[in-house]
Design a protein around this nucleic acid. Structure first.
Lengths: 222, 222
DNA sequence: ACCTGAACACCGTTCAAGT
DNA sequence: ACCTGAACACCGTTCAAGT
C-alpha cells in the first residue's frame, strides 16, 4: 500500500481548522437552520474563524455543497438487502435513494450537480443497471433506464420539496389555488372534475407507484 | 360583461413604467444574459428607473420570476394537433411541455414553483389527464399518472440543464469523471463495463423513450 | 399614485499582509 | 502553510420623503 506523504516537520503554520471541521459545521447549520442560512460568513463565524480561512479548505461554496452532499450520502444511504427478483432489486435501490433524499430537503440545491450523487451512491446505481440487464436489457438500454429512473426520482424530490417550501411561506392562496378557482369547466372538464381534490390527490405519496410503472414500462416487451 | 373600473381623473402621479414593461425587460435580460444576471437593480437600470420603482409593479423578485415563466409559457407553448389514439395524446402533450421547457434552461429556477407551470399549461394537463382516463384509468389514478409524468419531465430538464451548466464552467474533470476513473471493477462490474461510454450514453436525448416507457407502465393491466 | 435616495443588512471572493 | 483585515463588487428590500 502506498503511504501518504510523510508529514514534513513544521511545514509552516499549523492548521487551526480542518476540512472535516468545515464540512461538519456546515452540516450542523444546514440541519438546524436550512441551506439558505449556510453562508461562508456565517460558517466562519460558527467555526470561530474568518470567511477567508475557509477558502484554504474548500475551493468555493459550490465545492462545499458537493462535499456536504457526499457527507450526507455516506452517513444516511444504507444498502438494503437485495431481493432475488432483479426487477425488485431495481425498485428497492431506487426507493432507497429516494428515501434518503426525501429526508433531506436542502439537497435540492445540490442534487442536480451531476448525474450521480456521490461515490456512496455508486453501489445503488450498479444494482439498478445490473438489475435491468438481468431482466434482459442490453447494457446501453440499462443505462438509459437508470437515467429515466433518476429523472423521475430527482423530479419527485425537487417538485415536492419546492411545493412544500412555497406552501409554508405564508397563508395566502397559492398560485395553483388561484388557477383552479378560475377554471373553465367547459374547456377543461377533467381538471374541473378533480379541482376540489387536486390538493389532496397530489399530496399523496405515489412515488413507489410511479416508480413501479416506470420500471415495468422500461422492461416491457417491445 | 363587467367593465373594468373607470379610470379616475388624475388619481395621482401618472405611471412612468408598467408591469408589462418590467416583465418584458426582464425577459430580454434573461434571454440575452441568463437568469443569474437578472437582479432588481440591473433590471431597474435597464429600464431607466430605480430598484424601488419595480416594487410598485411586482410584489418581489419571486413574483417577477413567476410572471416571467407565465409570459414565456404563453408565448412558446403551442397546442399540438391531437392524435386520435388517447395514449398518443398523452405522449404528444407531455413532449410539447418538455420541448418548451428544454428550449429555456433558465426556467429551472422557477420550474418547481408549483405543480403546474402556468395557466397556459392547463390545456396540456387537461389533455394528459383526459388521455389517461380515456385509456381506462379512474380519474384519481389519471391525476397521479400526470404527476408521475411531470416528475419525470421536470427531473429531465433540471438534471440535464444543471449538468450542462456545470460542464461549461471550466475544463477541469467533472466530479463524475473523477469517480469513474477510480472505479472498482470487482465491486461495480456493470459500471466499470460502461464507464468509458457513460458520458456518451447519458448525453443522448432519451426523453421520449423514457416517457413512452412511463406511459405504457402507467397504463399496463394490473 | 407613483417614484426617488439613502440606508439596512447582507452576500461570495480577491488581495496583500501577517505569523 | 495557514490565517487575518480590509476591500471589491455586488445583492433584495424597507423606510421616509418628494412630486
Amino acid at each position: 500500500m502506498p503511504q501518504p506523504p510523510a508529514p514534513r516537520k513544521t511545514p509552516g503554520r499549523p492548521p487551526r481548522i480542518s476540512r472535516e471541521e468545515v464540512v461538519g459545521t456546515a452540516r450542523r447549520i444546514v440541519d438546524s437552520e436550512g441551506v439558505a442560512r449556510l453562508t461562508m460568513r456565517r460558517l466562519a463565524a460558527e467555526i470561530g474563524s474568518t470567511p477567508m480561512a475557509l477558502y484554504h479548505h474548500v475551493r468555493n461554496k459550490e465545492e462545499l455543497l458537493v462535499l456536504l452532499l457526499d457527507d450526507y450520502a455516506a452517513r444516511t444511504l444504507h444498502r438494503p438487502g437485495l431481493p432475488a427478483e432483479p426487477r425488485e432489486r431495481v425498485v428497492v435501490c431506487a426507493a432507497a435513494i429516494h428515501e434518503a433524499l426525501a429526508a433531506c430537503p436542502w439537497i435540492v440545491e445540490v442534487l442536480t450537480a451531476d448525474d450521480l450523487l456521490s461515490t456512496s451512491a455508486l453501489w445503488f446505481v450498479e444494482q439498478i443497471v445490473d438489475g435491468l440487464v438481468a431482466c434482459g436489457l442490453p447494457p446501453e438500454r440499462a443505462v438509459h433506464g437508470y437515467r429515466a429512473i433518476w429523472y423521475y426520482t430527482a423530479g419527485e424530490i425537487v417538485v415536492r420539496t419546492t411545493a412544500g417550501r412555497r406552501r409554508a411561506d405564508d397563508g395566502r392562496p397559492t398560485y395553483r389555488e388561484q388557477v383552479f378557482d378560475g377554471l373553465d369547466g367547459d374547456e377543461l372538464p377533467r381538471l374541473a372534475q378533480v379541482a376540489g381534490r387536486w390538493q389532496e390527490l397530489t399530496a399523496e405519496d405515489t412515488y413507489l407507484d410511479g416508480l413501479r410503472a416506470l420500471v415495468d414500462g422500461l422492461l416491457r416487451p417491445r
